[in-house]
């Protein structure tokens, strides 16, 4: 079967071309970049909402894009179990569109933070983590001003196994220092109940080539390979 992925280009997205580069040039996946107003879901097996500043993050990160017609299309995919992935600003859009629970507040430092962090895998069944092992520690960069996760009931998330990634140190310990933005429960990535929709604040597309990683890692590929695997499993 041939798998086709869509990357949505919201006005102000700026990791769209980076995501396309990784999917197309690094991983040789069939992928289209589509302007948000033109997106129709029927052709695609999965969709990625890339990072950036959709609509300038005016009002607050992701809120305006959450009302784009592209989100109505994505909702159809969400409902029938196809993978819907949001990275950074895309993750904020997913939260604003209520595809995933919770919200993203200003970082504790009130400043934009760009740095490499460690992520611990908490759930390896989702559309964006099934190629990982539980407890794996992965190196990825973050680059955001509004990344502090908040949710009313973290207990509910835990019970439903919706926490996918947490910020940790290199050994996988969830220390205060390892939590770059003050996220509740060190949460860096979450999914919906059905686990086909995952929102993630760090950038796997910036961590999919050894040359870009200060540690010489390419952990970002695991995320996109998980997406492919999820689609294959669904079909078979």
């Amino acid at each position: 079967m041939s798998i086709k992925i869509a990357v949505i280009q919201f006005p102000g997205a700026n990791c769209d071309l980076d995501t396309i580069h990784v999917l197309k040039d690094v991983m040789h996946i069939d992928v289209d970049l589509i302007w948000h107003n033109y997106f129709k879901e029927s052709k695609y097996d999965g969709v990625i909402l890339p990072g950036g500043f959709s609509f300038g993050d005016y009002l607050r990160g992701g809120i305006i894009a959450a009302h784009s017609p592209a989100i109505d299309e994505a909702k159809i995919m969400l409902k029938d179990g196809r993978p819907v992935i949001g990275i950074c600003n895309g993750c904020q859009i997913l939260a604003e569109a209520q595809f995933i629970p919770g919200a993203f507040l200003h970082n504790e430092s009130l400043k934009f933070i760009c740095k490499w962090v460690n992520l611990k895998v908490e759930n390896n069944n989702t559309a964006f983590s099934n190629k990982m092992n539980l407890g794996d520690v992965l190196a990825l960069p973050i680059a955001h001003a509004e990344g502090r996760y908040f949710v009313d009931s973290i207990k509910e998330l835990e019970e439903n196994n919706q926490i996918v990634f947490k910020y940790s140190d290199e050994e996988g310990e969830l220390t205060k220092d390892a939590n770059p933005n003050g996220s509740l429960g060190s949460i860096a990535g979450i999914c919906n109940l059905e686990q086909n929709c995952v929102g993630l604040m760090p950038h796997p597309e910036r961590a999919s080539e050894k040359i870009l990683s200060p540690m010489g890692t390419e952990h970002g590929k695991l995320f996109f390979n998980s997406m492919l695997e999820f689609i294959k499993r669904k079909v078979s």
Partner: peptide, 28 residues
């Protein structure tokens, strides 16, 4: 200063802020 700058967007930054005397970018 440079933590507040997104110095990685564009996936070209090879020698990043604070890691070298200059900024090094790849030509993809």
């Amino acid at each position: 200063v440079y933590r507040q700058y997104d110095h990685e967007v564009g996936v070209r930054s090879i020698v990043k802020c604070g890691e070298g005397d200059s900024g090094v970018l790849r030509i993809i």
